[in-house]
Design a binder for these strands. Structure first.
Lengths: 124, 124
DNA sequence: TTAACTGTACTATTACTGATAATACACTAT
DNA sequence: ATAGTGTATTATCAGTAATAGTACAGTTAA
């Protein structure tokens, strides 16, 4: 269902959070659908259940999922999440672009890159 | 001379490395100029000298500075460094742009941001 | 009811890494 | 000589990620 990068500086639980954020925001996991159980996912990823639990607790806290004791966790429906996520992405992009300009990356290189990335498929 | 962000996830020594990379690549510290001493910088930043030493060792390893025992560390001259740095920045930018497209950030928002950032001043 | 699954909570332990502390040595300049 | 450089070494502390093990409460279906 998801993959983990053991080279990353980000902790496992945070990677899990981000992966599921993506799956939910892109609609791969639609609202109302059931999340994998803590134990099954832990088994699948060969990760301690506590680590999964920590990730799910964060996802719940951020409004991505909601738990039902004895049944499982389910994807919540929230339109504001995707908006927040996009705004956050634009903030990161702004910081990176400022840095690029600062160290002398030509504007043309950035525009070319942008065109190339966004040319491959139609945006959502 | 430089400032440290104690909220950042990046370790102190890595922040120091990046700050001096910027100072050197932008020409604020020109080739041949003397770096602050390990001890003085440690005092100024209220950081352990060993941490500064670790940062300087990395800077030397990457070709940014060269040490002379008993005299100090000095900024090296290397044109390839700035090129490598820019390429690395473009790689990060590519990854971030792919992510932006993936979560549905409109292309127009990215182009607008790019224009705004690069409009403020002429690139180096 | 029983069994097997769910989420949740708690404590303890391990492992890793960043950062500090305290020295020590070799070299340079005044 | 003295004070400043870079460099190296060892030890220790602190924070956090991750694991391990156990326990409890609720749901579901045989």
């Amino acid at each position: 269902m998801i993959t983990i990068d053991y080279q990353s500086r980000a902790p496992l639980y945070e990677q899990i959070v981000e992966k599921f954020q993506m799956l939910i925001l892109t609609g791969a996991l639609p609202p109302g659908s059931q999340m994998p159980s803590v134990r099954s996912l832990a088994l699948e990823l060969s990760i301690n259940p506590n680590t999964i639990q920590k990730a799910f607790a964060l996802l719940e806290q951020q409004g991505y999922i909601f738990p039902i004791k004895g049944k499982g966790s389910f994807v919540a429906e929230n339109d504001r999440l995707i908006i927040q996520k996009r705004e956050n992405c634009l903030l990161k992009l702004e910081a990176l672009l400022r840095h690029a300009r600062e160290i002398g990356v030509p504007k043309a290189d950035c525009t070319a890159l942008l065109t190339r990335i966004y040319h491959q498929e139609v945006a959502l």
